[in-house]
Nucleic acid binder design. Sequence first.
DNA 1: ATTAATTTTAACAAAATATTTATATTTTAA
DNA 2: TTAAAATATAAATATTTTGTTAAAATTAAT
Lengths: 229, 229
Amino acid sequence: MKTKKKIFVIDDEADIQEIIRINLENEGYEVSTFSSAEEAEKYLEKIFPDLIILDVMMDGIDGYDFCKLLKSSNDYRNIPVIFLSAKTDELDKVVGLELGGDDYMTKPFGIKELKSRVKAHLRRTAKSAGNEKNEITYKEVSLNPENYSLKIDGDYVALTKTEFEILYMFMKHPSKIFSRDNIIDSIKGEDVFVVDRTIDVHIMNLRKKLGKYKNLIKTFSGVGYGFRE
Amino acid sequence: MKTKKKIFVIDDEADIQEIIRINLENEGYEVSTFSSAEEAEKYLEKIFPDLIILDVMMDGIDGYDFCKLLKSSNDYRNIPVIFLSAKTDELDKVVGLELGGDDYMTKPFGIKELKSRVKAHLRRTAKSAGNEKNEITYKEVSLNPENYSLKIDGDYVALTKTEFEILYMFMKHPSKIFSRDNIIDSIKGEDVFVVDRTIDVHIMNLRKKLGKYKNLIKTFSGVGYGFRE
DNA sequence: ATTAATTTTAACAAAATATTTATATTTTAA
DNA sequence: TTAAAATATAAATATTTTGTTAAAATTAAT
């Protein structure tokens, strides 16, 4: 929810590029397309992709070599690569060369297949990148990421996802003040536009759920909100 | 169910290799064939097989010796070996030598026999690897791994395999929320591509079967599902 | 090779949540 | 103290997510 996953599509056929772009953008990914490996290479320093979709046969540096290049770099080694090819035997070669334990699709491929493979790979890397959240406790209030709940004096109160995210952010940095824009950006992503008052409503709902501890959330007029005594 | 079981087939007759490969791949195993023990040995480091099918008579290292080699290694000792031989008396020798308490088949062998023996051995190792599941009980609901059944107030309700796996995971970690992706990964494996709403249907079916206890499965909107009061 | 069982998908209804709008209340600053 | 600015609240609306059903696809069993 925070930031979009970035995907590079490297294929010299413009229409393949577009089919993939449209479908993946539709799924909420940020897609950059390139017609050659050289072109993509230049952008690697600017944008760090979460996944690369790579055609095997291309002019200049072909898919095999580009992948080898990636896998020999510490920075890029762990980016999953999905190979594309029109011919099965080309893919055999990829598999045989053991260019990295990623994935392979033959053209023409189904859109559904594409989407689900992309999703599966991103799911996998998300897992290995330790982004677990830990329980945070303040006095008699504790926020539990395992079940998105709030324990107040021993009683459990359910939070919605957004409420949880906001409160988590607050409690993670108590005594820090967050502007409404801060909050919107980190909860929804930078390209999401909602009216400021929306945050007020979430804050209000959180305070209700905090019951007698509602004043732990402080309003800083003209600035924003924060969590503290 | 998570990943394919890997089987090595070591036999110098190419057609035997193929018959076995086709039939076992058909059963969902990942099969690697080798024409000699030496060849197989090289691959042991790359691929750790769950089971080995081994011809007794071969040029170079024969089946007896290869098996002895395996059994003398801590790493490979526990891989079950199924011996193949054209002659019964050769197998007698294997048994006599006590090369490990595995299994023996004479050529020609029936496909059905092969499959069931393979399955039996894999089942056995799976068990000894401490993956046994124990009965879990919560209030008047208990989940029995022996027969994938659910006992509710004394009545038995049959679960399908997937239903069982999901509920087992839930009850093993009550009060934890699992995302749909979490569930797919642990039930089906990371390389399986299904639409995540599939889980909703399983949840619904589980709730139906839970009858009056259906509300033990909670929905956490935007997050996932979990088991709790 | 059929049949049956299970799993998956797709479509739409229902529910939950998020956002906006409108208005009341509080805070700020001159 | 008072007008302007900012926030709180409640109610209305929009959006997202989930529940449910039925049909299609896959898998297992006969």
